[in-house]
Design a protein around this nucleic acid. Structure first.
Lengths: 341, 341
DNA sequence: TTGAGTCGATTCAACGTTGTAAAGTGGGCG
DNA sequence: CGCCCACTTTACAACGTTGAATCGACTCAA
């Protein structure tokens, strides 16, 4: 149906290669010829066939973004940032959901579909450090997140430890002494939970405050309901604390809800800070203090690294980039007088 | 670099077409030959080149999903549903963000990139009824949403009027008499705001309650901050009401926040219902009553219609489907005793 | 024994594009 | 006046795959 170079050529009365030259604005085309061809293109509504172009050129102009699930706000905002960053470079984004399922995460890298794109930005949630050797695909990969370090791929990650330390110090600076943690993962060392907990411990240590496992609540998943359950758990066992560090915003929001239900005022009785700077934290009641982990920078860095890798796959050893973070104080720690951020 | 049919053929000692036959499990291949070929495939780690296959076959196995922005929770959840529905049929999804910008919405349909996919699922937010004639692309289109009716494309939409009427009736059934509306759009007739407001009016009419524009708050955008501002506005002008219909969940959440700040108890003083059944409505304080507009059904129907259209573009006249909805009563209308839904 | 028919494998062309090489135009200069 | 070179256009091959057509060998029935 669609017009091809040949159709345009026939109408313009030139060879199809001349039409191709016009489209790729090849230098040596006479103006009159160019005009003729352009007229024919307009007349037929010709569109280049990108599939054919891809076959010929060996690249597609698309990248794949694999993440657990878009209905998790963190990943939705990450995808937003990645798509915008990609669009700036004329790249289009194919989104795959893994559902945080180990099998599907491995499939994403193995699937021939991946070759419909030039590279993969991969945010795993089921794979862990022991799988570092499995991070490999037919196309260049940029790894996101904090589950796997030292793979043979480029890697963009936030400064979990330092940022968590800063979040904790923010609470300490407000005079809080007993800071509960919501969302730790049993026995985890790396991974968001493990690293952020380490940052928390470092902050305490820096101020000479002993670590108390009695005010650390463990969860399995990082949904709001888990944050709520964890806070219920803390309250039920009579833990005493004057602040809460939610290891992500969703957990923190669940915790805030339970605190409010239980009659505590946030931040006067208990200050709460989260982590991720989700859009919605700006609108909750109270607005939630949090850490902006540099999402835009993560997306832009990942795209830039991926493009470099696509151009020159083995041009350099695997790189590891940490993005800048920023503590965002809002009402849940500094109260209603805070200037909105 | 990557192995091709020819490479496999050379290793297996057969013609490249035989390899192709094995891969497409063509009936007439001797078992011993098949085995030889499969061994060679495994040995070389051969992966079919999908780009070449697409060029030859004329279809790509991908579809495009164009929506305003993934950081808006409604669209993130819609994208999640569409990607899952597509995956069930082996389709992969390319996500384009339009930023609700008229120019970009038109570009999506005109872009040659669109041909990297077999069809488009399009959820416009800037285009309106007057643009119905512009809904046209090089590939089949399924339109989502309530901004444009009667275009020449298939269309999946929720039952805005009926569902909004049901939401309003839910409030009326609880004995509420003065139901404020948050999020109306000035002068809008179709579009989510216009249709839902119509449903609201129909519900009032059905019960013989006069419509009072004094308790209808108009907004420009549907963000949480607009819901908050609208509620401030209502309170400031001394409007009296015992319930609120937020025309979507985000607005409703903003309104709830302001009501709580102002000292009203939800639902005892003011009951609030939203619209969309966002995941997060299950976790807010109080949990938010809402309307589930049938998101999964929307996604699955859109995929099914698109696949039918791809197979047979002109096989039938444009279709219009409305999905089933469901009022979801939660704490913000029926109180804490409510069974969670 | 031969012709028809089936099975198994191969050859060839085509999808629509771009890179390479070559061919066809001029014009300027010796 | 002819030759060289720069400019412009063209012919051809190739990217990796699949469908159509073909071909050889073998089986089975007449």
């Amino acid at each position: 149906m669609a017009a091809t170079l040949h159709d345009v050529a026939r109408v313009a009365g030139v060879s199809f290669k001349t039409v191709s030259n016009v489209i790729n604005n090849h230098p040596h085309v006479r103006d009159t010829t160019r005009a003729k061809v352009e007229k024919a293109i307009a007349e037929l509504g010709y569109r280049p066939n990108l599939t054919a172009r891809s076959l010929r050129s060996g690249h597609t102009g698309a990248i794949t973004l694999a993440l657990p699930q878009l209905s998790l706000p963190y990943f939705a905002e990450l995808a937003d940032a990645v798509i915008e960053a990609a669009a700036k470079h004329g790249l289009v984004v194919l989104v795959e959901q893994t559902g945080a399922d180990r099998k599907r995460e491995l499939e994403v890298m193995a699937s021939p579909r991946l070759k419909m794109s030039d590279g993969l930005i991969f945010s795993p949630l089921a794979l862990g450090q022991e799988d570092a050797g499995l991070i490999k695909a037919d196309v260049p990969v940029v790894l996101l997140g904090e589950r796997i370090f030292g793979s043979s791929s480029d890697h963009v990650t936030m400064q979990n430890v330092t940022a968590a330390r800063a979040a904790t110090e923010h609470l300490l600076d407000l005079g809080k002494k007993r800071i509960a943690v919501v969302g730790a993962h049993e026995g985890e060392v790396i991974g968001s939970a493990g690293l952020r907990l380490r940052g928390y411990k470092e902050a305490l240590e820096g101020r000479g405050i002993p670590y108390d496992d009695g005010i650390v609540a463990y969860v399995v998943d990082w949904h709001r309901s888990n944050g709520a359950a964890a806070m219920h758990d803390l309250l039920d066992r009579g833990a005493s604390f004057d602040a809460v560090f939610g290891l992500n915003d969703t957990l923190a929001q669940g915790a805030v809800r339970v605190l409010q239900e239980a009659g505590y005022r946030v931040p006067d009785d208990v200050a709460v800070i989260g982590f991720d700077d989700l859009d919605e934290t700006r609108y909750s009641l109270p607005t939630l203090s949090t850490v902006d982990p540099g999402r835009t920078e993560i997306a832009e860095t990942a795209i830039r690294m991926l493009m470099e890798r696509i151009k020159d796959p083995d041009g350099m050893p695997p790189r590891e980039v940490e993005t800048a973070f920023r503590v965002v104080p809002r009402e849940s720690t500094v109260g209603a007088g805070a200037r909105p951020t």
